[in-house]
Design a binder for these strands. Structure first.
Lengths: 301, 301
DNA sequence: CTGTTAGCGCTTTCAA
DNA sequence: TTGAAAGCGCTAACAG
């Protein structure tokens, strides 16, 4: 092309503020939308925030943009979001599934779009998945509490029918079993989704005739909620000594807690990056069977 | 229409998995894309995570989806993102601007798309803006430290050329001035963007011949970094007593810090919701002059 | 109530 | 090297 003409066009572009319409472009056959759909349960939780960051960074490297939806743990909302994403011609999906049901994530329902499940698995779906090694992390953390001499160890977590909560409970259980400690049902409290419920559960535990001497909290909401109750009771003297605590999920400032603490830490950003990379491998043509990645976690006392 | 025909069509839709192509729909004149573009500096920071949550929730209520981009405080990246969003036919933009320069946010550059600036303002742009009341929050927090008897109060924050950091420094300065305390340049440390820098800055302050007796940290990264250094030094005995601390940004577990703490708390989710609502008012036809909202913060000792 | 057509902005193909 | 045309999936307008 004549350089002069090129210049004239470029000038006109600048002058008129022309911008290619990406949506119009994407309806042509053989053109991709450059979009990936990401459905997350709670973007306000720093764990998922960092997860989203990891996804976005890898997507940006690959010239893709992120369509973000927050499900709030609502399966209906997740269905709507996924359906909408498909209608918007996303090239692939990354989903933190809210529930055990996942027909809407089956390959046929998605018109063959690749999907990567993250953080949680859902039965019957042949999709790539990246998870944390929940069982082993929970087991090791509980083992540490046992090593500190504790036998009355409480469990605080989400409803164990939830994928991660169930796995973390399993790890907790295994550590107790290995130590020959019988489980006390009164010390297992599940179903706490948010801070308020976690505080209520911890309050109940401390008010038992024989309260636990240590607590395993299966996620950061339960850790923080439990510690808030402990802080209040230490301050007003109703508690002489803080129980030992193990937390699945790292939590900032936990070093100030005046009691032994064990932390299961992991890299949510990395998890997001891996999920995105797995998706891009599919987009690049990889067509093997579903892959299952379990990211190791590290346990620190 | 004959109900029978309708049923036949619906059946076919279900059987073939038909989904309307939203991108194709949006290129028709008079059709909107249903997309809003959100450019944030760091989605992994819980403050911005909650901000994004607030935006997403309001957008979802209004049937809009969020295109999310992370700028990482990089102005070039912000420009690319905004330009890409426009190309994707977003109906409007919500931007946490990364820098003082904002030609790419001028109405002409955006082809008339409405934009709402959040958290930070940028000069010369006639756009709606929602900010925290940084000056007053910082002033009140510092005032509390003064009321506790402190005179050697350090400032830890981002580079004061950054919008929020500058405003928070201004509030800090005003409180000192009102109390008749001369500023000591050795006690003002700015430019810390992340935890590592914050720790280094705090270390420097504690190593002064005459270290501060109190610290005002202008954001959660600086608060956490400072407290990490304090925790370490309390643990190894290099520090006998923790300095008092005021934190702009609420921080979980701060109640365990064994020293007086003042917290400037605010609701990032609400801030995001307001930004989104302001944008939707524009989309609904509101055409008044740029609005400026300053969200009050609350200061707790 | 149903069917047809034009045209949105784009890219690919084919023709000049 | 440049120009013209076809057609992507959709909706609005119009005709039957």
């Amino acid at each position: 092309m004549r350089p002069e003409l090129q210049q004239r066009v470029l000038d006109a572009v600048a002058r008129l503020g022309y911008r290619r319409n990406e949506n119009a472009r994407s309806i042509r056959p053989g053109q991709h939308s450059g979009l990936i759909g990401v459905a997350i349960t709670n973007i306000g939780n720093p764990y998922y925030g960092n997860f989203a960051l990891g996804v976005e960074e890898v997507a940006a490297e690959r010239g893709r943009r992120v369509l973000l939806g927050n499900t709030g743990e609502d399966l209906d909302r997740e269905r709507q979001l996924v359906s909408d994403f498909v209608g918007r011609q996303v090239e692939g999906l990354i989903v933190v599934p809210s529930g055990p049901s996942g027909e809407h994530l089956r390959a046929e329902a998605l018109g063959g779009l690749p999907v990567v499940l993250a953080s949680r698995q859902v039965g019957g779906i042949d999709a790539d998945a990246v998870l944390l090694d929940d069982v082993e992390g929970a087991r090791q953390a509980t083992e540490r509490l046992v090593a500190l001499g504790h036998e009355r160890i409480a469990f605080l977590g989400n409803n164990v029918s939830m994928f991660t909560a169930g796995r973390r409970y399993e790890g907790f259980r295994r550590a107790l079993e290995a130590a020959g400690i019988a489980e006390d049902p009164a010390l297992a409290s599940a179903g706490q989704q948010d801070l308020e419920a976690a505080r209520a559960a911890m309050t109940r535990l401390l008010d038992l005739a024989e309260p636990p001497t240590a607590v395993f909290a299966a996620n950061n909401r339960n850790t923080i909620g439990a510690l808030q109750v402990i802080a209040r009771r230490l301050a007003d003297g109703r508690l002489a000594e803080a129980p030992a605590l193990a937390s699945f999920d790292d939590v900032e400032l936990i070093e100030f807690v005046p009691a032994p603490t064990v932390v299961v830490s992991h890299d949510a950003r990395e998890l997001g990056g891996i999920a995105a990379r797995m998706l891009f491998e599919r987009l690049d043509g990889f067509d093997g069977p579903p892959r299952f990645v379990e990211l190791p976690v590290s346990v620190q006392a």
